[in-house]
Design a protein around this nucleic acid. Structure first.
Lengths: 76, 76, 76, 76
DNA sequence: GTGGTCTAGACCACA
DNA sequence: GTGGTCTAGACCACT
């Protein structure tokens, strides 16, 4: 029952919003296995900062929908 | 022999040891992008359980050396 | 009675349950900034171990609802 | 033995550099308990992105030098 | 089978 | 004492 005065509860919903969207894309096959997920890109697509994006990925990792893999090409 | 028994002053952390090892392998190119990392294998190699292995991956993720991707599908 | 016994389809996660609860308390102002959070207490309140509690805090950190600060010194 | 060609090994040292710096400040008392740590500020101070900052904080958390506390004032 | 998650129990360092 | 960390063992969902 958080009030709107100082901090909008809307903000936290963002992470779940992003999570749900990604969930759909993954389950529907839009996002292939091994497919890089650019946090910055996602952030921009959802008009959010990278914080909720990270939160969303955390959630999806909990669901086993995303996994950690090496990213040697960090020069790219 | 389930307990640790010893510690270093303020810098124990099996996870960091594992993280450093993986870091080297990634930077040296031993681990390719999208390369599956068998957590159990790593755990055995380091004589540790899976917990510190996951912790190590988290650290590397913070460093941008590993990335979250749609569940790579085990067999591929 | 150490085992879980049951699960929800694809969205279990004791950690998320805890995270949501804490999220509410923070947004509602029940938890003040810099307020110590006793992990053991939380664990007991939720009938869980300390592991999911820490996981929940991680999630909230991704959401920017909790922050890392220099070890608050227990007694203060 | 990472080569300098594509990715500079210097980059990862950054997180440790930051970690060591913060460690000193905390132990010397420059950073008080409960003191907020602004990841963005740190990032700028070290001329780095927020990724190595997060990595540094992860390391310090492993050392028990920083802890997670609520940040209700996210409207500030 | 593999990853992700959790319990329960135990240890150390710091305050 | 408290937090942070680890082991060992076990369960489920998805591939």
């Amino acid at each position: 029952m958080a009030l709107n005065g100082k901090h909008s509860p809307v903000k936290e919903a963002v992470s779940r919003r992003i999570a749900e969207s990604l969930r759909s894309k993954i389950l529907s096959g839009s996002l292939q296995p091994g497919q890089r997920i650019r946090q910055e890109i996602l952030a921009e697509e959802f008009g959010a900062s990278r914080l909720p994006v990270r939160a969303a990925l955390s959630i999806l990792e909990s669901d086993g929908l995303v996994t950690l893999v090496p990213t040697p090409a960090h020069g790219r």
